[in-house]
Amino acid sequence: MAPLTLALVGIGKIAVDQHVPALAASADWRLGATVSRHGTVPGVPAYTDMAQMLDAHPEVSVVSLALPPVPRFAAAKAALLAGRHVMLEKPPGATLAEVHALAALAAARGLTLYTTWHSRMAHAVAPAKAWLADKTVTKATITWREDVRKWHPGQDWVFEPGGMGVFDPGINALSIMTHILPDPVHLQSAELEFPANRQTPIAARLSFSGNVSADFDWRQTGPQTWDIQVQTPQGSLALRMGGNVLEIDGQPSGGANSLMGEYPALYARMAELVRQGQSEVDLTPMIHVADALTLGRRIQTEDFSF
């Protein structure tokens, strides 16, 4: 089957680290163009203007957006209006309403829209979901602590309105939680720590129905912590390494200690959706973030700088 030609928009750290290697290794895809203010991919036609790229490359049938959330809507709308299928990096937008608008536009034009959640593609998430499917969860604890300076070096946009702050990584945990728990939960309370000089939180503590809690922090140095622990009357489950390593009752039970399988799986799924003429739009993780920003009690903490 001939590969699909794709344009990658936003050549920043996540694009270079994950999107570009995943595309290069896939027989499903050919990277036909890029759009970015500064970044390029060697050997690939590069543009700084979205409209110019769309006009110059009618062979591009799919646009993958790795832009920050705030400018993503305009780029996604332009791609859909130009008749191109669209793949959205997480979170799929800056607001829930704009993603609903994109979904309606894609449906009206018979195009694929895919809201990706890369952490759901981690090696151990599917077996964790299967193990929990027939069980009653009595408690679940999420601990997601990492170093913003390592993963977003100098990227001030993450602390601007729409940048989501610590929910940028925290939504990865929420995407796993909403996928593996056998019953839905809803937020009951939240505490959000905002640096005095920033517009989005650097830490958050969330309490959900069903005895589920989450602790997010962007100030952890040294080893990073991406853990989800679930207790049931039939035993306990733990997901480590961002959902890539599975433990059942404290014993290793599958997965792989690597993050590199997530984006190849996303692009395989996008190819499948396009060829089947389907869309996949799930906003559940983002709903929990919106609820946290609505219910959250604001705590001011010390200034933060990169």
Rank of each mutant, 00 (worst) to 15 (best):
P184N: 00
T136A: 15
R37A: 03
A106K: 04
A140F: 01
A94D: 11
D28G: 03
A2Q: 11
V289N: 05
L102C: 13
G10I: 00
M177P: 02
A76D: 03
R298K: 15
L293W: 04
K77Y: 02
H123I: 02
F306M: 07
P184L: 06
W117L: 10
W117H: 15
A97Q: 11
H186K: 14
H179R: 08
D147G: 11
G242N: 04
P195F: 06
T221P: 01
I228L: 14
F167P: 08
L132D: 06
M53H: 06
L67P: 02
V60W: 08
E191C: 12
E89S: 05
A204L: 05
W29G: 08
I299G: 08
Q231T: 10
V62Q: 09
G110I: 06
A204K: 08
P21F: 00
P223A: 11
A66W: 11
N257Q: 08
D147F: 11
T225E: 07
L111R: 12
T178H: 08
Q276E: 15
A27T: 13
H100R: 14
A15K: 01
L111C: 07
A124F: 11
I248P: 00
T138I: 11
V281E: 10
W218S: 15
M53L: 11
L4E: 10
A106C: 07
D147M: 09
A27N: 13
P3M: 05
M177T: 02
T115P: 02
H85N: 14
V9Q: 02
L259P: 01
R30G: 03
T112F: 09
R120I: 10
M121G: 00
H57G: 07
N211K: 10
K77V: 00
Q199F: 11
K150V: 05
L174T: 02
L54M: 06
L259A: 04
G83V: 06
W218C: 11
P42E: 10
I228H: 00
A204V: 01
A101V: 01
G243N: 03
T284D: 09
W151S: 08
G170W: 06
A203T: 04
I287R: 13
V166A: 12
P161L: 12
S175G: 15
E98C: 02
L111S: 06
M50Q: 15
T138C: 03
V9S: 02
G261I: 07
M53C: 13
A271G: 15
D55R: 14
A56S: 12
L54G: 05
Q231W: 03
V185I: 15
G154T: 03
V230F: 02
R37M: 00
E302R: 13
L237H: 13
F167L: 12
V158A: 09
F306V: 02
A108I: 01
H100N: 14
E59G: 11
A130N: 04
H100F: 05
P195K: 12
G235Y: 09
Y47S: 07
E262V: 10
I14F: 04
V44S: 07
K139N: 07
G39C: 01
